[in-house]
Design a protein around this nucleic acid. Structure first.
Lengths: 188, 188
DNA sequence: GCAACTGATTACAGGTTCTGCAATCACTGT
DNA sequence: ACAGTGATTGCAGAACCTGTAATCAGTTGC
């Protein structure tokens, strides 16, 4: 018998999402989150760097995964093709979590501080991609630009995926975004 | 004779930059900034929404200006051309403030919280541009994508402008970024 | 069997950020 | 004179976050 029930960070995340949904992000204190999870405020900060981070579980490992996958992508792919393929490979994972993503999006949209953190995560993703591209021999500023453009397309696809009343798959929106990118690029 | 010496926000900004440079962002309290400016902590918060905002003066009006200029850009320009032209129009303004920009960059680079705010400002800029493009009749998702790509190029240009040991003008780096964008787009 | 170790949790104290509210006070217009 | 304006201030307090040390069930080494 374990001394402490497992899944502490998960319990904190669930409690946080419940409370944020019920009464909003600002009107919820960290102490309340911890209490609902059967823990104390101090324990919350043992698992999350700050109050916002509880809404971004696994983001850092996702970013690391993208960077890693890009490192082993076939060399004959162009940089943008490689990134696009890596994103596409992870699209099923997202589709299976649409409900959770929708609830999370609601909370994020309601508070600027949380969107700020989201942009920070996207910037970190772009930095990781740029790093991987440089590792593939892409020179600057092409690496940074390609990474930024890719993340823009990714983010745009994610937004439209969640806003889509027809509930199309993330993969469909991803391809639509990248295709639109090619189309508009032709008019430059 | 005015009751209070003028330029309160400017004095707070100068005091903040001095202190952040001397002992770092984290080791400087808002009370210390206010005291150095001959004011109180409460007055600081009358002028800035939070501690970080003191390093982003006039950003919101800059964003509004970009949006406004885009609204009156000639219709025969393609969306990306229009944005590029608006950015170029403001490049002299930046060149005249290179020193201040360098000091500010040093402070920003040293603390993640500040970079987070910077990304939030860039995201706000992208949103404003997307809005202006939609006003020009650009449909979604092209508007959002073009705006995102533009801001990526802008940000990349700004970074390289400040990192350039040859001290090239911002306009040169801006054009280099946009040209590189065209070049890489051809390999997609 | 027993002691030392481990590692998650907890208790506590305290600094900092940020907000709400009411008061001050020189200047302004009537 | 005299009320109005508006920037500043004082004060109280909630919430966020951190450092440090204590607790204690389970595990390991002997």
């Amino acid at each position: 018998m374990a001394r402490w029930p497992g899944g502490t960070p998960e319990r904190l995340q669930e409690a946080a999402i419940e409370l944020f949904t019920e009464r909003g992000y600002e009107r919820t204190t960290v102490a309340e989150i911890a209490t609902r999870a059967g823990l104390t405020e101090r324990t919350f900060y043992n698992h999350f760097a700050d109050k916002r981070e509880v809404l971004f579980p696994g983001q850092d490992s996702f970013i690391a995964g993208v960077q890693d996958a890009l490192g082993r992508a076939p060399t004959e792919q162009s940089p943008l093709e490689a990134v696009r393929a890596v994103f596409t490979a992870g699209s099923d994972w997202l589709d299976q979590r649409r409900n959770a993503a929708e609830r999370r999006r609601h909370i994020l949209d309601a508070h600027p501080d949380l969107r700020e953190r989201e942009w920070a995560k996207l910037a970190a993703l772009a930095a990781a991609i740029a790093d991987a591209l440089r590792g593939r021999g892409v020179p600057e500023p092409a690496a940074t630009l390609t990474a930024g453009v890719s993340v823009t397309a990714y983010h745009c696809a994610a937004a439209r995926w969640l806003a889509d009343p027809q509930h199309g798959t993330f993969g469909q929106h991803l391809h639509a975004s990248f295709d639109e990118l090619h189309r508009t690029a032709r008019n430059w």
